[in-house]
Nucleic acid binder design. Structure first.
Length: 169
DNA sequence: GTATTGATCTTCT
DNA sequence: GAAGATCAATACA
Protein backbone atom coordinates (compact mmCIF):
# COMPACT_ATOMS: atom_id res chain seq x y z
CA UNK A 1 0.00 0.00 0.00
CA UNK A 2 1.18 3.52 -0.54
CA UNK A 3 0.69 6.95 -2.02
CA UNK A 4 1.88 10.53 -2.08
CA UNK A 5 2.06 12.24 1.30
CA UNK A 6 -0.11 15.33 0.93
CA UNK A 7 -0.41 16.53 4.53
CA UNK A 8 1.89 16.54 7.57
CA UNK A 9 2.37 18.34 10.87
CA UNK A 10 5.62 19.11 12.70
CA UNK A 11 6.19 18.54 16.43
CA UNK A 12 9.31 19.39 18.38
CA UNK A 13 10.39 19.30 22.04
CA UNK A 14 10.00 23.04 22.71
CA UNK A 15 6.36 22.67 21.80
CA UNK A 16 3.53 22.31 24.34
CA UNK A 17 1.48 20.40 21.77
CA UNK A 18 4.16 17.74 21.25
CA UNK A 19 4.20 14.38 22.98
CA UNK A 20 7.90 14.95 23.65
CA UNK A 21 7.28 18.24 25.51
CA UNK A 22 7.14 16.65 28.93
CA UNK A 23 10.11 14.35 28.42
CA UNK A 24 10.51 10.71 27.62
CA UNK A 25 7.80 8.20 28.57
CA UNK A 26 7.11 4.61 27.60
CA UNK A 27 4.72 5.70 24.87
CA UNK A 28 6.88 8.36 23.22
CA UNK A 29 10.25 6.61 23.66
CA UNK A 30 10.65 6.15 19.91
CA UNK A 31 10.49 9.92 19.42
CA UNK A 32 13.68 10.24 21.44
CA UNK A 33 15.53 7.66 19.39
CA UNK A 34 17.40 8.16 16.13
CA UNK A 35 15.75 9.88 13.17
CA UNK A 36 14.21 7.90 10.36
CA UNK A 37 12.13 5.56 12.46
CA UNK A 38 8.37 5.27 12.69
CA UNK A 39 6.70 6.52 15.88
CA UNK A 40 3.24 4.99 16.29
CA UNK A 41 0.90 5.86 19.14
CA UNK A 42 -2.71 5.25 20.16
CA UNK A 43 -4.92 8.29 19.70
CA UNK A 44 -8.02 8.86 21.82
CA UNK A 45 -7.84 5.20 22.77
CA UNK A 46 -9.16 4.22 19.38
CA UNK A 47 -6.90 5.06 16.45
CA UNK A 48 -3.26 4.67 15.56
CA UNK A 49 -1.22 7.65 14.39
CA UNK A 50 2.12 7.43 12.58
CA UNK A 51 5.06 9.84 12.70
CA UNK A 52 8.49 10.04 11.12
CA UNK A 53 11.11 10.70 13.79
CA UNK A 54 13.39 13.64 12.91
CA UNK A 55 16.30 15.63 14.23
CA UNK A 56 19.34 14.62 16.22
CA UNK A 57 19.28 11.42 18.24
CA UNK A 58 17.58 12.02 21.59
CA UNK A 59 15.95 15.33 20.68
CA UNK A 60 12.32 14.22 20.51
CA UNK A 61 11.02 15.65 17.23
CA UNK A 62 8.70 14.07 14.68
CA UNK A 63 6.43 14.70 11.73
CA UNK A 64 2.87 13.41 11.94
CA UNK A 65 1.62 11.83 8.72
CA UNK A 66 -1.89 13.22 8.27
CA UNK A 67 -2.95 12.25 4.75
CA UNK A 68 -1.84 10.53 1.58
CA UNK A 69 -3.19 10.42 -1.95
CA UNK A 70 -3.64 6.67 -2.54
CA UNK A 71 -1.51 5.28 -5.37
CA UNK A 72 -0.78 1.60 -4.63
CA UNK A 73 -2.90 -1.17 -3.17
CA UNK A 74 -6.07 0.89 -3.38
CA UNK A 75 -8.30 -2.19 -3.35
CA UNK A 76 -6.68 -3.42 -0.13
CA UNK A 77 -7.08 0.00 1.47
CA UNK A 78 -10.74 0.11 0.42
CA UNK A 79 -11.34 -3.29 1.99
CA UNK A 80 -9.70 -2.17 5.25
CA UNK A 81 -11.49 1.16 5.41
CA UNK A 82 -14.86 0.05 4.06
CA UNK A 83 -15.32 3.26 2.11
CA UNK A 84 -15.61 3.66 -1.65
CA UNK A 85 -14.47 7.28 -1.92
CA UNK A 86 -10.72 7.38 -2.59
CA UNK A 87 -10.51 10.80 -1.00
CA UNK A 88 -11.55 9.32 2.34
CA UNK A 89 -9.18 6.34 2.32
CA UNK A 90 -6.33 8.14 4.06
CA UNK A 91 -7.50 11.72 4.73
CA UNK A 92 -6.62 12.01 8.41
CA UNK A 93 -3.99 10.41 10.66
CA UNK A 94 -6.27 7.66 11.99
CA UNK A 95 -7.61 6.86 8.54
CA UNK A 96 -4.11 6.80 7.07
CA UNK A 97 -2.84 4.17 9.49
CA UNK A 98 -5.96 2.06 9.03
CA UNK A 99 -5.58 2.15 5.24
CA UNK A 100 -1.88 1.28 5.38
CA UNK A 101 -2.31 -1.34 8.09
CA UNK A 102 -0.02 0.46 10.57
CA UNK A 103 -0.42 -0.60 14.22
CA UNK A 104 1.71 -0.62 17.36
CA UNK A 105 3.90 -3.39 15.94
CA UNK A 106 5.37 -0.79 13.55
CA UNK A 107 6.44 1.51 16.39
CA UNK A 108 10.20 1.93 16.20
CA UNK A 109 10.80 0.27 12.84
CA UNK A 110 13.39 1.81 10.61
CA UNK A 111 12.05 3.58 7.54
CA UNK A 112 13.95 2.79 4.34
CA UNK A 113 14.79 6.07 2.59
CA UNK A 114 14.82 5.64 -1.16
CA UNK A 115 15.18 7.72 -4.29
CA UNK A 116 13.01 5.29 -6.22
CA UNK A 117 10.19 2.98 -5.20
CA UNK A 118 11.42 -0.54 -4.34
CA UNK A 119 9.45 -3.75 -4.76
CA UNK A 120 9.86 -4.46 -1.08
CA UNK A 121 12.03 -3.47 1.86
CA UNK A 122 12.96 -5.48 4.94
CA UNK A 123 11.22 -3.26 7.50
CA UNK A 124 8.07 -3.03 5.41
CA UNK A 125 8.15 0.76 5.35
CA UNK A 126 9.85 2.95 2.80
CA UNK A 127 9.88 6.68 2.18
CA UNK A 128 10.51 7.68 -1.42
CA UNK A 129 11.78 11.10 -2.44
CA UNK A 130 9.30 12.93 -4.64
CA UNK A 131 11.00 14.45 -7.67
CA UNK A 132 10.02 17.84 -9.00
CA UNK A 133 8.52 20.89 -7.37
CA UNK A 134 5.21 21.19 -5.55
CA UNK A 135 3.34 24.03 -3.88
CA UNK A 136 2.96 23.56 -0.15
CA UNK A 137 0.54 25.50 2.05
CA UNK A 138 1.32 26.29 5.70
CA UNK A 139 -1.50 26.55 8.22
CA UNK A 140 -2.22 26.01 11.93
CA UNK A 141 -2.17 22.45 13.21
CA UNK A 142 -5.40 20.55 13.77
CA UNK A 143 -6.94 18.97 16.83
CA UNK A 144 -4.61 20.53 19.40
CA UNK A 145 -5.34 23.07 22.11
CA UNK A 146 -1.85 24.35 22.86
CA UNK A 147 0.62 26.21 20.64
CA UNK A 148 -2.15 26.57 18.09
CA UNK A 149 -0.51 29.67 16.67
CA UNK A 150 2.40 27.76 15.16
CA UNK A 151 1.64 27.22 11.46
CA UNK A 152 3.24 23.80 11.29
CA UNK A 153 0.68 21.99 9.20
CA UNK A 154 1.92 21.49 5.67
CA UNK A 155 -0.39 20.42 2.87
CA UNK A 156 -0.13 20.02 -0.86
CA UNK A 157 -1.84 23.04 -2.40
CA UNK A 158 -5.12 22.20 -4.09
CA UNK A 159 -5.09 18.53 -3.14
CA UNK A 160 -8.50 16.98 -2.55
CA UNK A 161 -6.93 14.23 -0.43
CA UNK A 162 -6.06 16.33 2.63
CA UNK A 163 -8.02 15.87 5.84
CA UNK A 164 -9.50 19.33 5.68
CA UNK A 165 -9.85 20.62 2.11
CA UNK A 166 -9.35 24.29 2.78
CA UNK A 167 -6.57 24.90 5.30
CA UNK A 168 -6.68 28.45 6.54
CA UNK A 169 -3.54 30.35 5.63
C1' DG B 1 -23.75 22.24 5.76
C1' DT B 2 -22.60 22.39 11.34
C1' DA B 3 -23.02 20.27 16.13
C1' DT B 4 -22.77 16.47 19.34
C1' DT B 5 -21.36 12.17 21.10
C1' DG B 6 -19.29 7.56 21.97
C1' DA B 7 -15.44 4.64 21.37
C1' DT B 8 -12.02 3.69 25.81
C1' DC B 9 -5.73 4.04 25.56
C1' DT B 10 -2.03 6.64 27.84
C1' DT B 11 -0.47 10.18 30.60
C1' DC B 12 -0.83 13.48 34.05
C1' DT B 13 -3.17 15.70 38.13
C1' DG C 1 -10.70 11.61 37.27
C1' DA C 2 -9.69 14.43 33.10
C1' DA C 3 -7.77 15.41 28.66
C1' DG C 4 -6.04 14.28 24.25
C1' DA C 5 -1.83 15.17 17.40
C1' DT C 6 -9.50 11.15 16.01
C1' DC C 7 -13.33 9.20 13.49
C1' DA C 8 -18.01 7.87 12.36
C1' DA C 9 -22.75 8.02 13.34
C1' DT C 10 -26.46 10.76 14.40
C1' DA C 11 -29.20 14.84 14.85
C1' DC C 12 -30.35 19.01 13.24
C1' DA C 13 -30.37 23.58 9.87
Amino acid sequence: MGGVIVETEAYEPDDPASHSFGGKTRRNATMFGPAGRLYVYRSYGVHWCANVVCGEDGVGAAVLLRAIEPMHGIDVMRARRRVADERLLAAGPGRLTQALGITAVYDGVEIALRNRLQQSVASGVQLVRLRGRVNVVMSPRIGISRATERPWRYSLAGSSFVSRPRPRA
